[in-house]
């Protein structure tokens, strides 16, 4: 891709999210989301492969549907209440429609089925953008509308954690596993949103850090399925040692970063007198933990047979920059002791 057009597209990606962040008006927020969608499609199809074109088409269809629904809901809101303000949603009908439209945009179950298909067709860098940066703008909107009816978000959240764990069980393709892990994590965020929005922000932040480092690790290993992951010990031994910690952090085991949002969310659900919900969500996290464990197992705990020449690629200097990975992986593993500071930062 031409560097000039790449610059324009990346700039537009930034602009779209920024517009959605700063807007208090539904029309402008919708415009930001549309800019985001438009700008990433050429990035998706940049390799001119039939799979990536298919992924781009599917992404476009899902996002265009969600954006049309959002626009329809905000116009309905203006019609019913005479308000365009994001913060002053009072009528339940447009609020519910907007919640569902944003759920389709970020891929919450049962509106999730586009996400694994799309992510599987992309290269890891674009997949990284899709599962981190593209989630920010819809979440900024989701946090601003005050849900009059928490049932919708709770149902979306429970279904997502369940489907995210369940769907990832039988996958061998890493990008599909990451998509299902994204669905499960977004489910946790949607679940706590009606009760304690700061925890949604905290979960989003930790999820972004963890998934960023996971994508970077896979990119460094050039791994897109489990078999390729099994020979990563010969390429990058240190990363191979650290990755199980990263994956278990995604799974939410103490004392890693990923434990923090799950801990706080379960505690808050218990405080709100919803022990059944908390138990069910914790049990669905076990399903996700299974495939993270399987990834760690095949990456670290097995030594894939290889010929003698194949065991020493780690001696070569790697050409790719590893500073972002170094920073993000240390944050993704060891951020739990900073939990009080992060909570203080995110609580209004």
């Amino acid at each position: 891709m031409n560097p000039l057009i790449l610059t324009i597209l990346l700039f537009a990606l930034g602009l779209g999210t920024t517009i959605t962040f700063m807007s208090s008006h539904w029309l402008f927020a919708w415009m930001g989301l549309e800019i985001n969608t438009l700008a990433i499609i050429p990035l998706m199809t940049q390799h001119h492969h039939p799979r990536s074109t298919e992924a781009g088409t599917k992404y476009f269809l899902a996002q265009a549907t969600a954006a049309a629904m959002l626009l329809f809901a905000s116009v309905t809101n203006a019609w019913l209440t005479g308000q365009w303000d994001i913060l002053q949603m009072s009528h339940p009908l447009p609020t519910t429609m907007i919640t569902l439209a944003l759920a389709l945009k970020i891929g919450l179950a049962p509106l999730h089925s586009w996400l694994p298909e799309v992510l599987q067709g992309l290269d890891l860098t674009t997949g990284l953008i899709l599962s981190t940066w593209q989630k920010l703008a819809p979440f900024a909107l989701l946090l601003q509308i005050n849900p009059t009816n928490p049932t919708v978000l709770i149902m979306l959240g429970i279904t997502s954690t369940l489907v995210g764990g369940w769907g990832g069980l039988n996958q061998t393709q890493l990008r599909k596993i990451l998509a299902y892990s994204s669905i499960a994590h977004l489910g946790w965020m949607a679940l706590i949103l009606p009760f304690y929005p700061s925890l949604t922000l905290l979960a989003l932040l930790t999820y972004l850090i963890m998934t960023l480092s996971t994508f970077l690790v896979f990119k460094l290993n050039k791994a897109t399925n489990i078999n390729t992951l099994a020979i990563s010990w010969s390429k990058t031994p240190i990363i191979t040692t650290l990755t199980p910690l990263l994956l278990l952090s995604l799974g939410g085991l103490p004392p890693l970063t990923g434990f923090m949002p799950k801990w706080f969310i379960l505690q808050e659900l218990t405080k709100q007198n919803l022990p059944l919900l908390a138990t069910f969500t914790a049990l669905t996290a076990l399903l996700s933990l299974y495939f993270y464990l399987r990834l760690s197992y095949s990456m670290t705990l097995t030594m894939f047979p290889n010929n003698l020449m194949g065991t020493t690629p780690w001696r070569f200097f790697t050409q790719s920059t590893s500073l972002p990975l170094a920073l993000s992986i240390s944050m993704a593993i060891a951020l739990l002791p900073l939990a009080p500071a992060m909570m203080a930062l995110l609580t209004p």
Partner: peptide, 9 residues
């Protein structure tokens, strides 16, 4: 931007 996107696609 839409023009650029369409041309690139």
């Amino acid at each position: 931007l839409t023009l650029f996107v369409v041309l690139e696609l």
